[in-house]
Amino acid sequence: MVDLREGGHHSGNWGGLIADPGFLLAHALASIVGPTGALLVEELKAPPMTASVKAALSDVEIDGGDKGPQIDRWWGEPGLSPAERVYAANTFNILTFWTGTPGRPVNAIPPKAVANCQLRFIAGTDVDNIVPALKRHLEAKGHHLVKVMPPPAVNDGAFPATRIEPDHPWAAFVTASVQRS
Rank of each mutant, 00 (worst) to 15 (best):
E61F: 00
D72L: 14
P132F: 05
D167Y: 00
V154K: 10
N13D: 11
N93E: 14
I62C: 09
V33I: 11
A83Y: 10
P78E: 11
V60H: 07
V106E: 07
G7V: 09
S177M: 04
K147N: 07
W75M: 06
K45N: 05
A153E: 12
V131P: 02
I109M: 11
S52Y: 08
N107H: 10
F159N: 04
G103S: 09
V41D: 04
R73A: 13
G76N: 06
L44R: 03
V114A: 01
L119H: 09
A153L: 06
G12R: 01
G100T: 14
A30C: 09
E165C: 03
E77M: 03
L40M: 10
I109C: 10
A115I: 10
M149C: 06
F159P: 00
H10T: 11
G157S: 13
S181G: 14
M1E: 04
S81I: 03
H10G: 08
F173L: 06
D167Q: 02
A28P: 11
W98P: 01
H143W: 07
G103R: 05
H10Q: 13
D167P: 07
A140L: 06
G37Y: 03
K45D: 01
S11A: 15
A153F: 01
T91M: 09
I109H: 06
A123G: 10
E84M: 01
V33Q: 05
